[in-house]
Design a protein around this nucleic acid. Sequence first.
RNA 1: GGGCGGUUAGCUCAGCUGGUCAGAGCGCCGGUCUUACAAACCGGAGGUCACUGGUUCGAACCCAGUACCGCCCACCA
Length: 885
Amino acid sequence: MGTDIPKSYEPRGTEQTLYKWWEEQGFFNADVDSPLPPFSMVLPPPNVTGALHMGHALNITLQDILARWKRMDGHNVLWVPGTDHAGIATQNVVEKNLAAEGKKRTDFTREEFEAIVWRWKEEYEARILGQIKQLGCSCDWSRQRFTMDEGLSRAVREVFVRLWEDGLIYKGEYLVNWCPRCVTAISDLEVEYEPAEGKLWYIRYPIEDSSEFVVVATTRPETMLGDTAVAVHPDDERYRGLRGKRIVLPLMNREIPVIFDSFVEREFGTGVVKVTPGHDPADFEAGRRHDLPIIRVIGDDGTMTAAAGPYRGLDRYEARRRVVADLEALGLLEKVERHAHNIGHCQRCETIVEPLVSNQWFVRVQPLADEAIRAVEQGRTDFQPKNFEKVYFEWMRNIHDWCISRQLWWGHRIPAWYCDGCRETIVAREAPQSCPKCGGTKLRQETDVLDTWFSSALWPFSTLGWPDRTREQELFYPTSAMVTGFDIIFFWVARMMMMGLRFKEDVPFRHVFINGLVRDAQGQKMSKSRGNSIDPLAIIEEYGTDAVRFTLAVMAVPGTDIPFSIDRMAGYRAFCNKIWNAARFLLMNLDSDAPVGEAEIDAVLAGPEPGLHHRWILARLSEVIASTRRDLDRFFVHEATNTLYHFFWGELCDWYIELVKEDLSGDDPARRERAQKVTCFVLETAMRLLHPFIPFITEEIWQKVPHRGETIMLRPYPQAFPRWQDAAVLERMQRIQDLISAMRTARAENNVDPRKWVTVYLRCDDEARELVESQLANLKRLVRAHEVVFTDRFPAERILLQGVTSLGEFALLLDEVIDVEVEKQRLQKELQKLDTERLSLEKKLANEGFLEKAPAEVVAKARSRRDEVEGLQVKTREKLRRLAP
RNA sequence: GGGCGGUUAGCUCAGCUGGUCAGAGCGCCGGUCUUACAAACCGGAGGUCACUGGUUCGAACCCAGUACCGCCCACCA
């Protein structure tokens, strides 16, 4: 068996074939009639804007690891895939695309434009789904959803209407963040603040009926055209005289009052601020407190409105220049200072956001947030890492109402109608035929659409058929886990919590696993403009999906960013190849097609001469299984991955396979058969253990290993074998390894040709001798010795390389003279190491506090190690002395 | 202005409950095509675990402070 296996693993082709087979066989699909305990997740739906990036690859890999693990471990796994219409983002990319053809959105009717976006959606969704599949994602494609499909749109309307009926949605004129380029309102979260070097203009505002003036400081002189007051702090002694005074607003020659309000920071500027309720959030609030009129001087497109008088029609920044120039001409500009501040930009197009008063729809979130806070406080949902709960609480406790209306064409149209007759607003699940108030039939639907996150917030239950009652919801809600990035905790996680608790009366997920951002190898954020972004598909093409997945998994420390390095990934591709070749070797040495189960291994272990290396690898396998499960349970995917890597390569390949060669190539059929059973069992188990992480190569190999069942995907995830764990076996094996390593080091350090054969002399006690004899052939092969002689007295020749290990003393007899100085140096170095260790142990053991307070076990360990080191020291010194030049 | 995270080998990063935890990958040095694998094997060099105190028998790990770096939130216009 196995002789026809190629020497290196070729992921291309195999991956597609396997995936197609898995999918066609329905292995990914959940079964609502299954008696197994459910495990469910919803895939964070990628936007249909473009292509998958490394962040998606990470996120999907982590989820797939959980899904495959749970599925193998006896759960009825539902993992719902889908895509997000991503309102503003998608509209923008489509518009950009049109612009390349010299067209604008407004060249089309709304319906025509929507049709264009739908076509885009179909194309990009298909592309994205293909990419998700290339990652090996085992989600249930029969339940794939889209945030704007029929069912989800119904869920959106249902939620909207119910929130409206409960008074949690309202519409009104408020100050919102406005993107003049997207020409829509956006939420607070969609504004990104960037530090900028600005200016602070000091402007003289004349006091009415006097020649005096007050000086206000502002970073936005153009908004003065909309000022409706000037404010000072009520306790500010400097401006007591302003009480009852009125101000003449320059350029507009409008009379405005002076208000006294503690929102003014006395230290800022002159302590007098202009108040523009139409264009500043703080001023808007102040305006409400003082009943100030609101004047909007900047329009939806970022140009000045009629209210800006002579500046009408100018772009807001051109208006700024003109206002400043005019003020200067009038002698009203006192001074200009440099001023660093933060400027808000549109998350989607980076245009500077304009705060302005506008008629919009809002969700009153406080009551929803209270529930969402309580649920996490009660531990009904927890975060990994835990500290993200703090971030969540902080935001939830200071939450502001959520502006949900967008002046876009792509999205869920708000289910509200206005009656032309009586101006009534009708909110309904379906289009009303007539006005319930006046009976009028001239109804116009609201043209605004909803914030894209409104529908995302419903994703954990809308995808399960809500608002209908479904078996899926009974079984799979709340979902078991949500894996997502910290960048969307507020946008998404928080809102899913609120909506889930409100409409399903339970949290949407039990655990939130936060993954970091994928950065480049230098830790820089990946971005197109930096030119450092890596296309996951391109590297999958080159390195194979398993290598990419393994790299992401091993680096995925929860909540921590990942510096993705191609070099490192090349290392993990090598690991895949290593697995391939280990399997190739073991398969080449199998004679039987019969699967090997635990019972057969028990029989081997109970039989004559089970072999230390067999017992050792089985003990280690069991330990590794237990630790992998522990790590997966707490979402320490990186630890699990790392453990498996070192077990497979460092122990299974580097030692066990080397040791088992002797069994397999020898002429003892019973021994060969025992080895075949163990290797077959270990290989088959290791493939199952590794499958969630690297699904393709493990399935490919597993199919070649004698096995039961159809696919590795649906075989049980390995359970530890406590009865095979044996500390004594591990220790004995460790001593053999130490001895072999020491002899190899002695050879290498003395530049002994690796091809040269030597004679090994060993001076050790009977127990050690028995141990060595049980591994004699292996030892000979691994250190290139044609003979091992047990003796009390080493030969006197000057061509000995000597050493001391916990197993005993060894000497290697060469057939040529060695450089005594080199050997001396080597032994001296060894002695140095021992001296250091001895010293620290002695110090510890001389410490009464340690003897009294440390656990007896720790003390005993230190003692026995001290004795051991002492013995090694004495013997090493002796050897050094004998080596005298 | 608040809050969070980081500082460990040349580079990028792991290190769980304080006690062989000084680790990985890549890079570097020396040597091997030893019939699973040169995408490999065998060896080696390299670190005051940012700094200062503290707790402890014992600290990379816990506590306090400092210095840098990064991120998030926030209505100083």
